[in-house]
Simulated assay, not measured.
Amino acid sequence: MPLLLLLPMLVLAILGLWAVLLPISLIQRYRFGRKRRRVVAWANSANAWLMLISVAAFFLSGWMATRWLPDALVMAAMGFAVGIALGILNLLISHREVEAGSVFITPNAVLVLGMTLLVASRILLGFWQLYEHGFQLHPIQREEAWFLRPDSLFALGGLLLGHYFAWCWGLRSMLRRLLPR
């Protein structure tokens, strides 16, 4: 009998640890997201090219999800477009420095805070929806705001992916201008 209790206790312990560490991880995400950092050209170039694979996989999963969530691909595309706009905006308003042949960049703290709060609010919204609906496969259909629908997760994912996509490719082109070979 005690062995049967071990698995539920382990699951509860992992959930408790996650609940304690989540706020800390969000605070750390904000702290590290707004720090000045050196841009390593080869690493940024590798990130930019690998982002193409991530974007392709994201839109493929959005297309596959349209079987169950009819607006998943549309939400993914809209979120991606907004994310690209935010990434370009972040590049334009970020502080750039060139020192001794290296480029340093400091992302805009307000934009980093906004994106961190967006992720935190979506996590809280998910918990609220879990409390409200439980694990119902087909909750009662009613008119809801777009951000309350399950396919809105594709919009948030597209926003974050689009932001980083624009950020990587924008940094890549900025480095080519600032550091001639």
Score class of each variant (00 low, 15 high):
residue 45 S to H: 12
residue 15 L to P: 00
residue 40 V to N: 13
residue 43 A to P: 06
residue 22 L to R: 11
residue 31 R to Y: 01
residue 25 S to Q: 10
residue 61 S to P: 13
residue 51 M to C: 05
residue 31 R to G: 03
residue 36 R to C: 13
residue 36 R to Q: 15
residue 45 S to I: 13
residue 21 L to M: 14
residue 16 G to R: 01
residue 45 S to N: 15
residue 27 I to D: 05
residue 66 T to P: 06
residue 48 A to E: 00
residue 57 A to M: 11
residue 25 S to G: 10
residue 35 K to Q: 15
residue 64 M to H: 10
residue 48 A to R: 06
residue 19 A to F: 13
residue 65 A to L: 06
residue 56 A to P: 11
residue 49 W to K: 08
residue 31 R to V: 05
residue 53 I to H: 12
residue 16 G to D: 00
residue 14 I to K: 06
residue 55 V to K: 02
residue 19 A to W: 10
residue 27 I to S: 01
residue 32 F to A: 11
residue 25 S to C: 09
residue 50 L to D: 03
residue 24 I to D: 05
residue 40 V to M: 11
residue 59 F to N: 01
residue 66 T to A: 01
residue 51 M to Y: 09
residue 66 T to G: 04
residue 62 G to Q: 03
residue 40 V to D: 10
residue 14 I to D: 06
residue 46 A to M: 10
residue 67 R to K: 15
residue 62 G to C: 02
residue 21 L to V: 12
residue 30 Y to H: 04
residue 49 W to G: 12
residue 38 R to D: 09
residue 58 F to D: 02
residue 17 L to P: 07
residue 66 T to N: 07
residue 15 L to H: 08
residue 52 L to A: 08
residue 22 L to M: 12
residue 34 R to Y: 05
residue 27 I to C: 03
residue 55 V to C: 05
residue 66 T to K: 08
residue 37 R to Y: 02
residue 28 Q to R: 14
residue 50 L to T: 11
residue 36 R to F: 08
residue 43 A to V: 14
residue 52 L to Y: 06
residue 39 V to F: 09
residue 52 L to G: 09
residue 44 N to W: 06
residue 55 V to L: 05
residue 25 S to H: 14
residue 52 L to T: 09
residue 45 S to R: 14
residue 60 L to I: 08
residue 43 A to Q: 14
residue 19 A to D: 11
residue 17 L to Q: 04
residue 31 R to D: 01
residue 28 Q to S: 14
residue 58 F to K: 00
residue 40 V to T: 10
residue 15 L to D: 06
residue 46 A to G: 10
residue 48 A to G: 03
residue 14 I to L: 15
residue 46 A to V: 12
residue 60 L to G: 06
residue 57 A to E: 04
residue 23 P to H: 09
residue 28 Q to C: 00
